[in-house]
Amino acid sequence: MKQYRMRPGRLIAKAVLALAGFLAVFPLVWTALNALKNNVDIITRVPKVIFTPTLANIGYILGRDSVLTGLYNSIVACGSAVLIGIVLGLPAAYAVARYPNRFAGDIQFFVLSLRFLPPVAVAIPLMVIWLQVGLYDTLPALIVTYSLLTISVIMWLAIPAFQGVPKEIEEAAFVDGYGAYSVFWRIALPVAARSLIGAIAFSFVLVWNEFLIALMLSSSNAKTLPIVASELSQQGMNVPWGILNASVVLLSLPPLLFLGILSGFLNSVFRQKNN
């Protein structure tokens, strides 16, 4: 082993990895630092590492009505769509996982193929439809549209999660006189809970980050946070860099809260594969 340590190839490999790790987070850290800077400290030809921090940018962002409305819209639209995804997606996934029929393969492919649809191809007709029924630029329209995303993603990820529940436990419950529904409620759901939470968190991140559909389906009332953030950059020539950086930080925080859950989910997926 000692011989390996001495080899320059190994050192270079470690340096490349360290550089990649640095590149993964540094741009984000830099953005967070810029959010705490006054504009004069950002617009410098030599990047400033030492500066007097200010909370003005963050205060400005949190005091803007448009940002607060965007935050509210994002939370309501994503939260409701994820709830609908849970209520409709989990039972369907369980049925596919545990009651295989000859359509099971086709159903899985259909659910996956929804991901092939280019978002523009869905957004243009939906805009016309929502305009005609008078729901354009409202949260219900956005929630219904996002539900397509959340149901299919939760279903796709929950099928393997339910398949990972040991069959013996469910069989034992049947023998104990449980009905099919109570096996789902009392056995399958709690046992698969960890993986299911990962799947749900993933679907939340996906719709929270969604941009194109929200951009096309809202004009003023139903704008979500990504749309509001993207508009802040278009305020003429005098770009308020600090404010923009603060809005990027605000927008990025919720998905990052799920970092732990999602990396645990990833690990559990591969542990299942191992067995």
């Binding site: 993964a24 987070v25 984000l28 953030a229 998905p255 990052l256 799920f258 970092l259």
Partner: peptide, 13 residues
């Protein structure tokens, strides 16, 4: 953990 962070960010961010 570090390598998962970028993909979680909204693409707008």
């Amino acid at each position: 953990l570090l390598f998962i962070i970028p993909v979680l960010l909204p693409r707008v961010s």
